[in-house]
Design a protein around this nucleic acid. Structure first.
Lengths: 114, 114
DNA sequence: TTAATATATAACAATGTACTTATATATTCA
DNA sequence: TGAATATATAAGTACATTGTTATATATTAA
């Protein structure tokens, strides 16, 4: 059961988390596809630990969830989270990031294709 | 003319601004009433410079606007801002903070009553 | 079992944030 | 004009954040 509204303090925590362009882009991207860490590393041209640390923050807040698939760990949005309605409505205001997925596919670097 | 979506980077900047419980509460409160700095000082039990600095950030981002009324400066939401649709939809997920206004009135500290 | 790959964690440095106190500016009113 | 009030700004400090590099852990495949 999800709440209609969310406490101000907790909401501020979520917004602070999303107030980083890398994490915000990740969330928008996860709206349409799942991704593994190594794909994000390619997409954001950022070190693997940096990506891993961003994802951990999202995971600790319950915004994303992980599933291991062999040697890869696939991340997806956790739509059951209490804050998902807030997050969802905010993501609607952002432009699709699917062009990044396309770039990845053109480079032959897409891994977690379903 | 407002845009349908907003760049990821700029959106992250806005969300980071709102990712502070004081500023987020201010924005929610400004949805229903205008406030002056001295009222926020009472409500948030915070020093005047601290409040002033929070408001300046909101103002610099164009989220709020000021109007001088005598010795007071009244702050209100800037609904013409490009990011207002995003901000508005996100505030809908937060509980009303009107009880804070009531407290203020009960203490006889309400200033900027229209 | 060993090498290769994917991910996580730890320790650190640079930078950013949010307060504080002290002080400046603007307005009102006696 | 001068005192009182409201607000802004500056400088300093404590703490948080985000990257880095080095290293640990987990899985796969030879």
């Amino acid at each position: 059961m999800q709440k209609l509204t969310v406490g101000i303090e907790k909401a501020a925590t979520i917004l602070k988390l999303l107030g980083d362009k890398t994490r915000l882009a990740m969330m928008k991207m996860l709206e349409t596809h799942d991704y593994c860490v190594c794909e994000f590393v390619e997409i954001f041209k950022m070190s693997q630990p940096a990506i891993s640390q961003h994802i951990r923050k999202l995971k600790d807040a319950g915004l994303v969830q992980e599933t291991r698939r062999g040697q890869w760990i696939i991340y997806s949005l956790n739509k059951d989270n209490d804050y998902y309605p807030l997050v969802h409505s905010l993501l609607q205001h952002l432009p699709s990031q699917d062009f990044k997925l396309q770039e990845l596919e053109e480079q032959g670097l897409r891994i977690s294709c379903d």
